[in-house]
Simulated scan of single mutants.
Amino acid sequence: MSSRDSLTASALAADFTEHLTLAERRSPHTVRAYDATVRRFLDFLQQHLGGAVDGERLQALALADFRAYLAFRRGSGLSNRSAAREVAVLRAFFRWCRRARNIRCDAIDALASPRIQRRVPRPIAPNEAAVLGQAGTDAHWTEKRDAAVLLTLYGAGLRIAEALSLKPGDLGRETLRVTGKRGKVREVPLLAAVAEGIDAYRSACPHDLAAEEPLFRGARGGPLSAGIVRTAMRQARAALGLPESATPHALRHSFASHLLARGADLRTIQELLGHSSLSSTQIYTEVDAAHLLDVYRNAHPRA
């Protein structure tokens, strides 16, 4: 048996995770999700095949084995969208196995991904987004922090992870330096309202905000968690009577949709969002069309 075939499943999963982290520079959230999916698949195979899994057994997998895994996951209530995500992860894992460990499994190429209906993001209104970023002068510093984070998500079109990775040194006079997926850096305009919200938070924050430390801090001074941001959004959503679709990520969608509605071109929006391909940005043309259809249905006498 070759050294390739003797590689254990656990070692392969660990090496793949290391590759995602170091070589592809994926976000910690993505790495955790990929690692969990691969290990879940390998644990299933151990039960399904009745023994330890190594490179030789991975290479010998048949299409029926992959379908058995998806059926197993379906039994746990997996949706089409989540199943498609797991298929994408497995394809990435076996591509890496082929390239890095010479483990070739042709069956994965024949595995069809479940069809999913593409969801069009529903932006919130500009006035609602503006209210989210407001905090009174007498507000507690954590309230000013929450308002500043939400305002930054909307005003700069950031992902939560991008906002939480900001450092004071990333703030320029008119631009914001953002580190996106895979460590890609981009510059986005720093709107006056966003700068004012951040300044109000920084003035009230009791912790030392060094230039190369996280800008947004938790109550005890450590990095702010994404969970706190989501909680702040839920509270603001309840106070304003916004729908469940009004999530922190919806603020990023709103940023792009509002730019498009005001005449910005897709290439500009692509650069601002940090999308690697224009196809990722083109979904916002559907958002704008959906908004126009809503207006038509609500206002046209023959609708």
Results as ranks from 00 to 15, higher is better:
Q46T: 15
G50L: 12
A125K: 12
D146Q: 02
R173F: 07
D109C: 02
D54A: 05
A110M: 05
L176Y: 03
R95M: 02
R182M: 04
A148Y: 12
A36N: 10
L158A: 04
I160D: 02
V131I: 14
F44R: 01
E56G: 15
R40P: 00
R57W: 01
F94N: 01
F41W: 15
A156I: 13
Q59K: 09
G55K: 01
R98M: 10
G51L: 08
F72P: 04
A62K: 13
G55P: 05
L49Q: 15
R159D: 05
F72K: 14
R118H: 12
R177W: 01
A161K: 01
D54E: 04
G180D: 07
Y154M: 12
A130I: 15
A64Y: 01
Q117Y: 09
A92D: 06
R122C: 10
A52R: 09
R95I: 01
G77A: 01
L78K: 00
G55M: 03
W141E: 03
L158G: 07
G51P: 13
E162A: 12
A135T: 09
A83R: 04
V87A: 02
R85S: 14
G155H: 05
G50P: 14
R145E: 02
A52V: 07
D109S: 14
A112T: 08
P123Y: 02
A68K: 10
A92N: 08
A88W: 06
R122Y: 08
E128Y: 06
L132Q: 05
T137G: 06
V120G: 08
R67I: 12
V87R: 05
Q134N: 09
G136S: 11
A84W: 07
A110R: 11
G133C: 12
R104M: 00
A68Q: 09
K167P: 00
N127T: 15
D65L: 11
A139W: 08
N80K: 07
A92Q: 06
V38H: 00
D138M: 11
R91Q: 02
D65A: 09
L61H: 03
T179I: 15
R182H: 06
R118E: 13
F41Q: 06
N80P: 11
T179R: 07
P168L: 10
S165N: 07
F94Y: 01
V53Y: 07
A135H: 07
I124L: 15
R104G: 00
R122I: 08
R81F: 04
I116T: 14
A130V: 14
I103C: 05
Q59D: 04
P123N: 03
F93Q: 03
A52P: 14
R40E: 13
A60R: 12
